[in-house]
Design a binder for these strands. Sequence first.
DNA 1: TTAGACTTGTCAGTATTTGACAAATATAAT
DNA 2: ATTATATTTGTCAAATACTGACAAGTCTAA
Lengths: 108, 108
Amino acid sequence: MKQSFGEYIRHLRTKNELTLTQLGAKLDLDSANLSKIENGKRDFDEKRLILLAQVFELNLEELKTEFFSDLFAKKLYESSSSTDALFVAEKKVKYLRQINAKQESLKL
Amino acid sequence: MKQSFGEYIRHLRTKNELTLTQLGAKLDLDSANLSKIENGKRDFDEKRLILLAQVFELNLEELKTEFFSDLFAKKLYESSSSTDALFVAEKKVKYLRQINAKQESLKL
DNA sequence: TTAGACTTGTCAGTATTTGACAAATATAAT
DNA sequence: ATTATATTTGTCAAATACTGACAAGTCTAA
C-alpha cells in the first residue's frame, strides 16, 4: 500500500526467488530495464500488466489498482495538487460509465 | 463537474465571449488545435494551466483539480479499471508528502 | 578473484505529441 | 444568395518522449 509500483514488483520477484534476468525474460524485458523499473527510474508499461498478472497468477483488477494508484499519486505529488481531483475523478468515471451504459442500451 | 476538461474550457471561453482565435492567442495555441482540445480530440497541455488560470483569473488549484480529475477518469474508464485506484492513490499521496516532510525537516 | 546479480549511463530506433497550415463546413449578418 | 467570420477536420513535419539494447560499473557471496 505504501510502496511504489516498482517496489511492488521487486517484492513479487524476490518473494518468488527470481532474479532480474529471470523475471525480465518472462516479461520480455531487459534485466537492466527491469532494475530501473523496480528502482523507479523508468515506468512499467501498462500493456505489460496482463503478462505480469499471468506470471505471478495475480488478479488483473488488483494489479491495475496498484498500477494506476501509483501513477495518479505521483502526478498529484509532482504537481503539488490537491487530492480533491481523486474524488472528482470518481464522479466523472461514474458519469462516463453511465453515458456508456445508456448508449449500449440504445443499441439493442 | 460532469463535463470534460475540453467542455470546461469551452464554457469559460463562451462565457467570456471569446472566439477560438482570441483565446488561442492568449494561450499561445492555434485556433484549430484549441478547437480539437474543446472537442476532446486533443489533450490540453498541463504546462498551459498557469496561463489558463491567468487568462480567466481562476484559482490554479481548482483548475488542476479539474484537469487531473479528467485525466484520471479517462484512464480508468478506458482501461475498465476499478475506482479503487483513486482511494489507494490518496493514501499514497499522503505517504509521499509525509516522506517529503520528514526529509525537509532533516535539512534544517 | 571469480561468478552472478544488480545498477547506471548512454544511445539509436520507435512512437507519440505538438504546432502549423490548408481546406471544409457552419453560422450569422446584410 | 453572398460575404465575412467562426469552427471543424485532416494532414504532416518537427519536436518530444519512450523503449530496447548494450556496455561498463558496483556489489555480494562463494
